[in-house]
């Protein structure tokens, strides 16, 4: 009996897989065959688009004021360089939210949405843009209620730190928004803005790179490979260059 079952199953699966093969074989292929040499077209670079200064593209004026104040507490200015605001972190976040990242263009965004492990990546229903909109609104409401009608920007730095700390630990509960998750998103994007290439709007004058000694978009270090215990002498360079590239009049 068991033998018969196994045989009939394998016969069925054999037929099914044969059918699948026939279907696959008769479907036109989308692969391209490249023979002889790799394809190349003149002028075919696909460069990143340089972020230009200008009006906010995603944030409202109130949202921008809140974000600028928050990123300046996450990375405060000190004698070693600018803080998050002057480094352009809010500009970076604004341009990202206005673009494909904000719309979750690269993510699978269909239900079911279930809590996943940290290793499973983004599992939330809202796009980053929607989460910022809701999170900033809820945060502004919370601050207005807790601090007698004041905005986040008007708070003393110590109070701002308290609010941000409360979000991070979950001590502050926002209406309809998970405060800890929103804080994690804001912190991550602020760090990105501080260290991403200046072409994306943050890391102004490569301040983040100068702070940690990162040389930027250079790609050949052969001359320094065996020079141990020596400081790397070259200044950082952005995808779009550095100030020394400008021809002085």
């Amino acid at each position: 009996m068991a033998n018969i079952v196994v045989r009939s199953l394998s016969r069925r699966s054999f037929l099914a897989s044969t059918a699948a093969l026939i279907v696959a074989g008769s479907t036109p292929g989308f692969a391209r065959t490249i023979v002889g040499r790799m394809p190349w077209e003149p002028g075919s670079a696909t460069p990143p688009v340089q972020v230009r200064p200008g009006p906010w593209m995603f944030f409202t004026a109130d949202e921008a004021a809140l974000v600028e104040a928050a990123v300046d507490r996450l990375i405060p200015p000190d004698d070693r360089g600018p803080g998050g605001k002057d480094a352009g972190c809010a500009v970076y976040i604004d341009r990202q939210l206005a673009g494909p990242y904000g719309g979750a263009a690269g993510l699978y965004m269909r239900p079911p949405f279930m809590p996943g492990a940290a290793t499973q990546g983004y599992q939330l229903p809202g796009s980053p843009a929607a989460r910022y909109r809701a999170g900033l609104l809820a945060l502004a409401d919370h601050v207005r209620t807790a601090f007698a009608g004041k905005t986040f920007r008007e708070l003393a730095p110590a109070d701002q730190d308290k609010v941000l700390g409360g979000l991070e630990t979950g001590a502050i509960v926002l209406k309809d928004v998970n405060g800890a998750e929103f804080f994690a998103l804001l912190l991550q994007n602020t760090q990105e803005g501080f260290f991403a290439d200046p072409v994306y709007g943050g890391n102004r004058d490569m301040a983040g790179w100068k702070l940690v000694g990162f040389p930027g978009s250079r790609y050949d270090y052969r001359d320094w490979v065996d020079q141990h215990d020596k400081a790397y002498p070259l200044p950082p360079v952005s995808i779009m260059g550095r100030s020394d590239w400008t021809v002085r009049e």
């Binding site: 050949d220 550095r242 020394d244």
Partner: peptide, 16 residues
């Protein structure tokens, strides 16, 4: 001036 700017550009974009 052009030579100085050119040297910086060459170092960063061409020398590799």
């Amino acid at each position: 001036n052009a030579m100085r700017a050119g040297a910086a550009i060459f170092k960063d974009s061409c020398a590799a």
